[in-house]
Simulated scan of single mutants.
Amino acid sequence: MPGCADAAARPELIPLCADHLALAAEVEGSVHGAADVLPAPCRLCGSRLGVRFLSGRVCAVCEWPYGEQPDGELPPPRVDVVYYLRFRDRVKIGTTANPRQRFGAIRHEELLAFERGDRRVEHRRHEQFAADRAGSSEWFAYSDAISSHVDALAAGVDPWDRWRRWVAEATATA
């Protein structure tokens, strides 16, 4: 750096001395935030991932301001999802805005995945997997095509974690 007598720590990467590099990182963090762990889980989505700004912290998942209490008087936002439930060698592809209540009425062994969407997305999935459909029901044979689709949707994330994130994001932007 011009006017600085100290040598750059890694001149091949950034030609700044350690002090100026730390100052640049601090300025960058004050503008764009710095990744941080929240002291306690986000009250909206439960994530511990945060972003620290000079003005405070926000959840890195749903951007809810850390420490703020969600308004309990507001109704929860509507988040429509297409769900994939497995029972033995069958998969039910359906849609709901209230999965816990809906799943209580459906015999199943496992929730495989959620996908954001309403009846239109559900209808597209029914058409996409029509060859595996059991009659005119919403149940399908658990084929390789459905398994691949479910694996891509799930991407190793617990479906309920994904659901909570979507609800938190919808609440934060309402």
Rank of each mutant, 00 (worst) to 15 (best):
F114M: 10
A131H: 09
S143C: 07
S147I: 00
R100Q: 13
E68H: 14
R116D: 04
A9Y: 00
R164F: 07
G135A: 05
D151Y: 10
M1Q: 07
R102K: 15
S47V: 05
V61M: 12
W160Q: 13
H126W: 10
S55H: 15
R48Q: 07
V167E: 02
G29K: 11
P65T: 05
S147R: 06
Y84T: 07
V121N: 10
A154Q: 13
A155V: 09
L112V: 11
A105R: 10
Q69R: 15
P2G: 06
A168N: 07
A60L: 09
E68V: 14
D151V: 06
P41W: 12
P15T: 05
W163L: 06
R57Y: 05
P11I: 03
P76C: 01
E12G: 00
A105F: 05
L21V: 00
G56M: 10
E68L: 12
E28T: 14
S143R: 01
C17K: 02
R125V: 01
P39W: 03
G135E: 01
A22V: 11
R86N: 05
L153F: 08
L13F: 11
D36F: 07
V81F: 08
E12T: 04
E26Q: 15
V91D: 00
V37E: 09
K92L: 02
G67V: 02
A97M: 08
A130D: 00
R48H: 14
I106F: 04
G46F: 00
Q101Y: 14
G3M: 04
T171H: 14
G46P: 00
W163Q: 03
D80Q: 06
Y142W: 08
P2M: 06
V51P: 00
G117V: 07
R48L: 10
L74D: 13
G135T: 03
L111W: 10
L21C: 07
Q69W: 14
V91R: 01
P99C: 13
A131C: 10
A35S: 09
D71N: 15
E127H: 08
R133F: 06
G117M: 11
H126D: 04
G156Y: 05
A97C: 11
A154L: 12
H123W: 08
R10C: 05
D71M: 11
D118G: 04
R48K: 11
A9M: 07
D36W: 12
R10S: 13
L23R: 08
E115D: 12
A105S: 10
W166C: 05
P159R: 04
V167Q: 04
R125I: 02
R10P: 03
